[in-house]
């Protein structure tokens, strides 16, 4: 009987202890970020979708069209095409398509890039991705780079 009463008293007390904690937190500052109005800075290592790195001198892509990223990709979402042009050493990039609908953001493509000292592809800081059609996510990275240069 006394155990029963003890349990009732200690049990009721435990509820008040819990309420005390929640009330204390009620008056503490808000920990959430009001997202559309406030944004947090992205960490430098944020792995977004990839983008082409421009050559600091010419502004064109650094890509040498070796196809290593294409081979490394587990989801086959990269298409790289290039052509030989007269007077230019190596191949010239004509198309770099990233099918973002299939990309799993693993970063194996960036890792496999053999271009030195700066890799020819990098992660973008873009995280506000929204769209209404599938086609909007098949990125033409070469066009994006050209648009940036303009």
């Amino acid at each position: 009987m006394s155990d029963y009463l003890k349990e009732i008293i200690s049990g009721t007390w435990s509820l008040f202890v819990g309420l005390g904690i929640t009330i204390r937190y009620f008056f503490q500052p808000v920990v959430t970020v009001q997202y559309p109005h406030q944004t947090l800075p992205m960490t430098p290592r944020f792995r977004g979708h990839t983008e082409l790195v421009p050559d600091p001198e010419s502004g064109g892509p650094l890509c040498i069209v070796c196809g290593m990223c294409e081979k490394a990709c587990p989801s086959n979402c990269i298409t790289v095409r290039g052509e030989k042009r007269e007077g230019v050493k190596g191949k010239v990039l004509t198309e770099y398509t990233l099918d973002f609908t299939r990309c799993s953001l693993c970063g194996l493509c960036v890792e496999s890039c053999p271009v030195t000292p700066t890799k020819a592809i990098t992660f973008s800081r873009d995280y506000n991705l929204a769209g209404v059609s599938k086609e909007a996510y098949i990125f033409d990275l070469k066009k994006r780079l050209e648009a940036e240069n303009r």
């Binding site: 960490t43 290592r45 944020f46 792995r47 799993s104 953001l105 693993c106 970063g107 890792e111 992660f123």
Partner: peptide
């Protein structure tokens, strides 16, 4: 973990022979 690995949930941080960065 995001500041180290670059992603928040489906980390792919380890590589054969070490870690990504």
């Amino acid at each position: 973990l995001e500041s180290v690995t670059g992603s928040r949930l489906t980390y792919c941080y380890f590589r054969f022979g070490g870690v990504y960065n």
